[in-house]
Structures are given as C-alpha cells and as structure tokens.
C-alpha cells in the first residue's frame, strides 16, 4: 500500500486517490499547428526507471489535484504539493 502525504489531509492510503500520470508532459498552446508537439504530448513519455513527477487526484478526500515525486523502482514518495500552484 502506497501512502500519500496530502498537503491538505495528511498521510492517506493510495486507494483514496486516482492516478493522473506523468506531470512532465506539457500541453502545447491551443494554436500550435505543428503535429510534432502534439505527438509528444499525447503519446510520447520519458518513462523513467527512478524518480517520476506525477499527478494524483485526492478524489476520496479533499478532491485536490496533487503533484508528487515517486520513485518507480521503489515506490518511495518524495515531496507532495498542490498541483494548482504549478500546472
């Protein structure tokens, strides 16, 4: 069981949350007309073995979107902050 330290609610079990994926992908500007940046955004991933910045939604708690760093090899969780400050 992963425990996530929600900045609002404190340390909670992972099944209160839904996973929101890689936080490093950035949506291109809506007037971006080249296909390359959209290909990168929709399909391509760094997929690191190690630290991964990602979104989680505390859907069964405060309902805030969070951004945290988690190690994909050990599942160890690092800093967890509110996503609205950054994204």
């Amino acid at each position: 069981m992963i425990r996530i330290n929600c900045p609002v609610c404190g340390s909670r079990d992972e099944n209160e949350f839904t996973y929101g994926g890689d936080a490093n992908v950035v949506r291109p500007a809506m007037d971006e007309a080249e296909t390359g940046p959209w290909l990168d955004y929709v399909f391509m991933r760094d997929n690191p073995r190690g630290p991964h910045r990602e979104y989680w939604h505390h859907v069964m708690g405060c309902r805030q979107w969070l951004m945290l760093e988690r190690d994909t090899l050990t599942h160890e969780i690092g800093d967890c902050i509110l996503a609205r400050g950054v994204a």
Binding site: N47, P48, R49
Partner: peptide
Amino acid sequence: GHTGHLADMAGLRLPIET
C-alpha cells in the same frame, strides 16, 4: 517491461509507460 530503460540508453523516446 524494460524497453523504456533500454530505449532511453539509445536516446529513443517511445509511446510506452511501464
């Protein structure tokens, strides 16, 4: 499941998550 890791060593970015 290690494709992402071995592709990364070759400088390839793939439409894959592990």
